[in-house]
C-alpha cells in the first residue's frame, strides 16, 4: 500500500511541478501579440497566394499592422469585401480592388495545331520546354502538360483537348499559374475586359499560319480598325492597351485568323 502511495505521490508531484513551472513561464514569458495583426489576418482569405506581393497572408497582415504599407486593396482574391474590412480595422481608405483573372493567350487545341514529334519524357511543361522547346508545332504555344494546373490551389485549371483551360468563375487571380508557365502564356488581366488576344506567337505571319490555324499573323488589321488606338502590333503580335479600349469589338470582328475574341457573357 505504501509503495502505491509513494508512486502516486511522486507522479503527482512531478506533474504539479511541471504545471506550476509552465504557468509561471507562461506569465513571465508572455509575448504581447499585436492585436491589429490578428484582426487583419482574420479578415484575409488565408489562401497564401502571394498576389499582394508579400509572403502569404501573414506577411501582408504584418506589413499592414506595422505600417509598412497603407494600401488596403492589395488582396486580389479577397476583392473589395476584404479591402473594406481591412480598411475598417486600419482606419484607412479602402480603395478598389479590380477583380483579376488568369487568361491563357493561346488556343492551340488539337484541332488548331499539331505536334512536331512525339514527346515521351517527364510529364511537365518545364521539362518538355527544355527538349527542342516543346513537342508542339508552335514553340510559343500551350504544351498542355498542366504545370499551371498543378500549382493552382483553386482547381480552376483543367487540361482539355491538348491545352489548359481556366475557369474564370473559380480563378482568384493569384498569378501562380502565370509564374509556372514556361512559355509565359498566362496573363493576369481584369476580369471585365471586352476583348482579348488569344495568341502568343511572335513569328512572322507566314510561319505562324503554318503552325496554327488561329495564330496572330501580325497583319495589323485590328490596329487599323480600332478607333481608339488601343491595339498595337509589336513583334508580329497584337497587343491591347486596356486603358484605351472602349470595348467596341471591331477588332474581334475583323481579325482574319480569329485570334481576337470577344468576352462571352
Amino acid at each position: 500500500m505504501e509503495k502505491l502511495l509513494i508512486a502516486v505521490a511522486i507522479l503527482t508531484a512531478i506533474g504539479l511541478l511541471c504545471a506550476v513551472l509552465l504557468v509561471i513561464a507562461g506569465k513571465v514569458m508572455a509575448v504581447p501579440v499585436d492585436e491589429t495583426f490578428e484582426k487583419v489576418r482574420a479578415c484575409l482569405p488565408g489562401a497564401n497566394c502571394g498576389a499582394c506581393g508579400y509572403a502569404g497572408c501573414d506577411g501582408y497582415a504584418d506589413a499592414l499592422a506595422k505600417g509598412k504599407t497603407k494600401d488596403c486593396a492589395l488582396c486580389v482574391p479577397g476583392a473589395s469585401k476584404v479591402a473594406g474590412e481591412v480598411a475598417g480595422i486600419m482606419g484607412l481608405e479602402a480603395g478598389t480592388v479590380e477583380k483579376k483573372v488568369a487568361f491563357i493567350t493561346c488556343r492551340g487545341t488539337c484541332e488548331n495545331t499539331s505536334d512536331k514529334f512525339n514527346y515521351d519524357g517527364i510529364h511537365s511543361c518545364a521539362a518538355a520546354e527544355l527538349f527542342f522547346a516543346g513537342p508542339g508545332q508552335c514553340t510559343f504555344g500551350c504544351m498542355g502538360f498542366g504545370d499551371c494546373a498543378a500549382v493552382c490551389d483553386q482547381n480552376a485549371i483543367c487540361i482539355e483537348n491538348g491545352m489548359a483551360h481556366i475557369n474564370p468563375a473559380l480563378c482568384i487571380g493569384c498569378g501562380k499559374c502565370a509564374k509556372a508557365c514556361p512559355n509565359s502564356l498566362i496573363d493576369i488581366i481584369p476580369a471585365n475586359v471586352p476583348v482579348y488576344v488569344t495568341c502568343g506567337n511572335r513569328e512572322k505571319g507566314a510561319m505562324t499560319r503554318k503552325r496554327c490555324k488561329v495564330g496572330c499573323i501580325g497583319c495589323k488589321k485590328c490596329e487599323k480598325v480600332c478607333e481608339s488606338g488601343a491595339i498595337t502590333v509589336e513583334n508580329n503580335l497584337a497587343k491591347i492597351d486596356y486603358t484605351k479600349c472602349t470595348g467596341c469589338g471591331k477588332c474581334a470582328e475583323n481579325c482574319p485568323s480569329g485570334c481576337i475574341l470577344k468576352r462571352i457573357g
Partner: peptide, 25 residues
C-alpha cells in the same frame, strides 16, 4: 523509490512539459 516501472509515463510527462517550456523560452 523502486519506481523504475514508471519511467515511460514520467518521461512522457517531463518531455511534454519541457518542449512547451522550451517553446516559450
Amino acid at each position: 523509490y523502486n519506481l523504475t516501472y514508471l519511467e515511460t509515463i514520467v518521461f512522457i510527462l517531463v518531455i511534454a512539459a519541457l518542449v512547451q517550456f522550451v517553446e516559450m523560452t
